[in-house]
């Protein structure tokens, strides 16, 4: 069995003149939470649609559980729990009808777990979907995605437009899915605080390209924010090799640096600068630096 639940190599996709994905290579390891972050229109949903087999690979290939999702959709989708960004479910159905309808498609459907989630999410099975609030609809979608205990949970912008209570439900479900059962979660978001709290591994997608794909702890280790003091005053930031962003004036300049810390120190000493302050970078800062630097 492959160590990777999702294996994407050199994936390319264009819609007319728009290049939605360009040479994307990504491997999602089995177990843990994989956060896919990117600004609006970065290509996150397109990438997820490739994983679900809704888009075929124009260039490169996509394997999920070692299978081609386009050629074998039933085998792949049967092991995936998916919650779409638009959370579009048939509005005329009652919650109970929708649950009964959905469970028919999943042999591994856990009715006990579905009932438990119905209770936890405070859902009334006799209520019609069209009468639900956006948050309640999100809970129904989450219930449907979780109740067959999928090996891979794919959540496309799960928290977008939801209040903190519902977001907490979703985050708890993600944690529970991975910690209780050792399964894999792939979720896309531009709410970076959520990704920071949950993800083991993060990929930044920008304009259809992967800018970064690392473990979260490695990301923190490889990005530094330092304030350097130089001997001479300058109107522009002195060029520090490996820096991604600079800000300041006169003799004191603050840099965001990508690389090992000893390399940073060596580079700054070459410029006769001394480190006068150092502060950790949040994922938000790292994301912005990557996007702006590109």
């Amino acid at each position: 069995m492959s160590d990777f639940v999702i294996d994407i190599q050199h994936l390319g996709r264009s819609f007319g003149k728009t290049q939605a994905l360009q040479d994307v290579s990504l491997q999602v390891p089995r177990g843990g939470v994989f956060g896919l972050i990117g600004s609006n229109g970065a290509g996150k949903t397109t990438l997820i649609k490739h994983i679900l087999g809704s888009h075929y690979a124009q260039r490169g290939w996509v394997k999920v559980f070692g299978l081609d999702p386009v050629a074998e959709p039933v085998k792949v989708l049967g092991r995936i729990g998916y919650m779409s960004e638009d959370r579009e479910v048939p509005s005329w159905m009652r919650i109970g009808e929708l649950i009964d309808f959905t469970r028919t498609f999943y042999p591994a459907w856990d009715s006990g777990y579905a009932t438990e989630l119905t209770s936890v999410f405070e859902l009334d099975v006799k209520q019609k979907i069209r009468d639900l609030s956006r948050g309640q609809t999100a809970r129904v979608c989450l219930l449907l995605a979780l109740s067959h205990r999928p090996e891979l949970l794919v959540l496309d912008e799960p928290s977008s437009g939801l209040d903190p209570v519902i977001r907490r439900d979703i985050l708890t479900a993600i944690v529970r899915t991975t910690t209780d059962e050792g399964r894999t979660v792939l979720f896309s978001s531009h709410l970076l605080d959520e990704v920071e709290r949950l993800a083991d591994r993060v990929a930044i997608l920008h304009q259809g390209r992967i800018l970064l794909d690392q473990k979260l702890e490695d990301i923190y280790e490889s990005y530094h924010r330092v304030t350097l003091r130089f001997d001479r005053s300058s109107s522009v930031a002195p060029a520090l090799e490996g820096s991604m962003h600079s800000d300041g004036n006169g003799k004191e300049w603050t840099y965001v640096y990508r690389g090992q810390k000893d390399q940073l120190l060596a580079a700054s000493s070459q410029l006769n600068a001394t480190v006068i302050a150092e502060s950790p970078l949040s994922l938000d800062d790292i994301f912005v630096c990557n996007i702006q630097g590109h």
């Binding site: 085998k75 995936i80 960004e85």
Partner: peptide, 17 residues
């Protein structure tokens, strides 16, 4: 997000095995 028409099936159904 959605191409579903009043008589079409939406994205939820594309995710069903």
């Amino acid at each position: 997000k959605s191409d579903a028409t009043p008589f079409e099936h939406g994205s939820f159904f594309n995710g069903l095995p």
